[in-house]
Design a protein around this nucleic acid. Sequence first.
DNA 1: AGACCCCTGGAC
DNA 2: GTCCAGGGGTCT
Length: 277
Amino acid sequence: MPELPEVETIARTLAPAVTGRSIAGVEVLNSGTWQGALAPTSILGHKISATGRRGKLLLIYFDQTSGHDTTIPNGLAVHLKMSGRLLVCPQETAPGPYTRVIITLDNTSHIFFDDTRKFGYMRAINQEVLASWSFWQKLGPEPLALAPAAFASLFRHRSGAIKALLLNQSILAGIGNIYADESLFRAGIKPTNPGNRLDEVRLRKLCLEMQGVLRESIAACGSSIRDYRTAQGNAGAFQNTFRVYGRAGKPCTVCGTPLLQTRIAGRSTVFCPYCQT
DNA sequence: AGACCCCTGGAC
DNA sequence: GTCCAGGGGTCT
């Protein structure tokens, strides 16, 4: 999926097209794509008030309903995983072969949830649903909301490889394979370093470099490697500025040493053996 | 920490 | 054919 900058971009590009609109129809074309206790029909008639993000989850909020009926959703959570797209299309646009859910708005435009690999999911949420959703409950802090000292304290006492720790959504929410590698390169940290062997200065630098990468990527509307698109179907541009991701064997942009590839936490990992220690 | 699972398409 | 892919869950 889209990682934090891509989900943030989708939330931002979705907002103007859906805010203030009510949900007039829901069609689930792949049953596995709709998850959770609340049925698709539970979102009918609700008016969208805002869009947002938590980690890599895209959130669509509904106007607050009066009362505390826990069977009524107050939003929608979407996880795009590896290949999901959320696209706003005019009425005349036909669904594609990988469209899994169609949400029709009261202005007759559609939100298509396309997902080639079917890993993604969508669910209606409210306070009760979120309280019993362990993935949600375990999510770590938001990377862009952390001060360097608080960031450092997340890793100081953990013995796992720093790359694996960055990918762990219960430690930090929103970092995926691309931004883990890019952040570690900018911070000059070898991805296999155990978290507890990095001193405070290096962890603080990692925090600032990570936040810089994320902000730059958001400004470029994210990275389009394969499937990711904004809600208007546009590609991002940040992939053009990768320094290590997808560049194994190519020269380091700083020192010219060929970049190495290894595997950490089951994910391919690219780094510079000279610049990253 | 690692292996294997979900699923599909693209590169080689 | 085989291997790989922005993720995460589960089981050893």
